[in-house]
């Protein structure tokens, strides 16, 4: 061992705390090194001072007064009664939540729930986006102005209208669709996809009839662009119907 290491040990450890090998090395070094021996003597002197400091145990100025003061504070706080079971239970509950492992477990549980929620939301969103993609139109539920002119969305609206047996007004249906939860919309879109072609065309007819009747009313609640988009859609559907009628007439 070097002098530096020996002096480090001398300043930071107590000889009785050293293991036998370290102690033997220390003693061997001290026997041969005068400089370290001088340091050892100084540290021993320092330890003798510390022993005196340790022996001079501070005494309470008035022990009796302190005892009485402690007991008085127990009485003052009404603590001399035996603790109730409820107090014991809540104390233990508090202690449990103070433990690091329990805090960690709770945090992990909250994190897990949060992540699960995010993943589920993401999956829902993904499913909706896929459906929207299949239908070739984007849907933004928060924007009525985007929902209204959309061709496929209009179909949903009419389907919804049909399901409500024609008792609900178009405005109400629109508002309800805006407020519809993603899950409901998802179920609704699935349902629409399952419809056969003839039902879909029937729905188109209902749509065109409905739009004819309500175009003015719609105009009062929607933006000008939306109304014009709807009118264009109506015109397109009309022409399609006429073509179909024409074909049927020929046949």
């Amino acid at each position: 061992m070097t002098c530096k290491k020996i002096q480090n040990i001398l300043f930071s450890a107590k000889t009785e705390e050293l293991d036998p090998v370290e102690r033997a090395l220390l003693e061997k070094h001290l026997a041969s090194c005068e400089n370290c021996r001088a340091v050892f003597e100084n540290v021993s002197h320092a330890d003798r001072i510390l022993s005196k400091v340790k022996a001079a145990v501070p005494r309470i100025r008035n022990e009796h007064a302190l005892t009485e003061s402690i007991l008085a504070s127990l009485l003052k706080e009404g603590n001399t009664e035996k603790p109730s079971m409820a107090n014991i239970f809540f104390d233990h509950l508090g202690d449990i939540f103070c433990k690091r492992t329990v805090r960690f477990a709770c945090s992990a549980m909250i994190l897990f729930c949060g992540l699960t929620y995010v993943v589920m939301e993401y999956q829902d969103m993904k499913a909706i986006v896929n459906l929207e993609h299949q239908l070739g139109k984007q849907v933004d539920l928060s924007q009525a102005s985007i929902i209204l002119p959309g061709n496929n969305v209009l179909r949903f609206l009419y389907e919804y209208y049909k399901l409500s047996n024609g008792s609900t007004s178009y405005v109400e249906i629109t508002n309800r669709l805006i407020l519809m939860k993603k899950k409901d919309l998802l179920a609704f879109m699935n349902e629409y996809q399952k419809l056969d072609k003839s039902t879909r065309s029937q729905l188109d007819e209902i749509k065109s009839e409905y739009l004819k009747e309500n175009s003015l009313a719609l105009g009062t609640i929607t933006q000008r662009e939306e109304v014009s988009a709807l009118q264009k859609e109506i015109e397109r559907l009309k022409s399609e119907l006429e073509k179909m009628n024409h074909k049927e007439g020929r046949q």
């Binding site: 300043f11 100084n42 330890d47 001072i49 510390l50």
Partner: peptide, 8 residues
């Protein structure tokens, strides 16, 4: 270490 050094 700190205390003993101060004392020494």
């Amino acid at each position: 270490q700190s205390i003993r050094k101060k004392l020494v």
